[in-house]
Design a binder for these strands. Structure first.
Lengths: 150, 150
DNA sequence: CCGTATCCATTCCGATACTG
DNA sequence: CAGTATCGGAATGGATACGG
């Protein structure tokens, strides 16, 4: 039996998780956002085996999150760059990072973080806004099912 | 060999993914945010087997994302409610939902969505802000490593 | 109704060896 | 350097049966 797939679920969260909800893919995207482009760089940064890195990159390309381009430096090899669709995953990564930073690290534990490139200042915590500008907390949000509850 | 664990990584994204980066847990949190509390309700909503639901709930409780309380209705059974730590996962879910909604659904395909509870209006797209108030896009963000690149 | 225990198929992950 | 091929072990996921 296979894992149940969510790609025909009416819930966009479920459908997203079906694509990127595994342990490696979002880390690959994280590194790609950080400017990593080459196979060996991914491998070194992630510490993943080559075969699984290869397969993940392949599916990411197939899904239109990464695309393969010619190497920017002289070398004859390809490189992997994010598409627009892939770049737009960054709020998810930042949200994960902020949550992890808050709940999974000790006070002054060494910890990488995403910052404003311009001045290297930390990014403001994510806030969700309503149409009228109110800030929305967890209790202010409700889920309207598309059809079924799933 | 086991999966490599990221819980001692210096990257908060990796550490978060180590906890919640699997296919079921975030969906459980999604349902919990939607007000689901009982075992059978989770099971019906998720369509997951009882044993795997049971194990996921157990680890979520162990991690302090859910906690077990007495049933609010008359019944003698327990129920699972989100802790603060668990509730604060909602930006991640919303980010996933917004991304999925934009890139994984056809124009007018039926699709569940999270809305402002007060007036059932859609939530504004997530924007990241710098300390000085600028809106930050994917290119405006940089990752500063804690120690190693991982 | 709320889970736990067991079983089996599938998948995943990591190491290694190999090709161009 | 950039992958592919293969292999064994581990964990996962699902169905079912069982106990409180």
């Amino acid at each position: 039996m296979k894992r149940t797939s969510f790609n025909d679920s009416v819930c966009p969260i479920a459908r997203s998780l079906d694509l990127i909800g595994d342990w490696w893919t979002l880390l690959i995207v994280r590194d790609a956002l950080g400017g990593i482009k080459r196979f060996s760089e991914f491998q070194r940064s992630l510490g993943a085996a080559k075969n699984i890195l290869s397969s993940r990159l392949k599916t990411l390309v197939a899904e239109g999150i990464l695309e393969i381009g010619p190497a920017s430096d002289g070398s004859a090899y390809q490189e992997y760059v994010l598409t627009q669709k892939g770049k737009e995953l960054y709020p998810i990564l930042i949200a994960l990072g902020q949550w992890g930073n808050q709940y999974l690290f000790a006070e002054e534990e060494a910890c990488s973080r995403a910052v404003d490139r311009l001045n290297l200042q930390p990014i403001e915590p994510i806030r969700l806004h309503a149409k009228d500008g109110r800030v929305l907390g967890a209790e202010d949000i409700q889920v309207i099912p598309g059809n079924s509850g799933e």
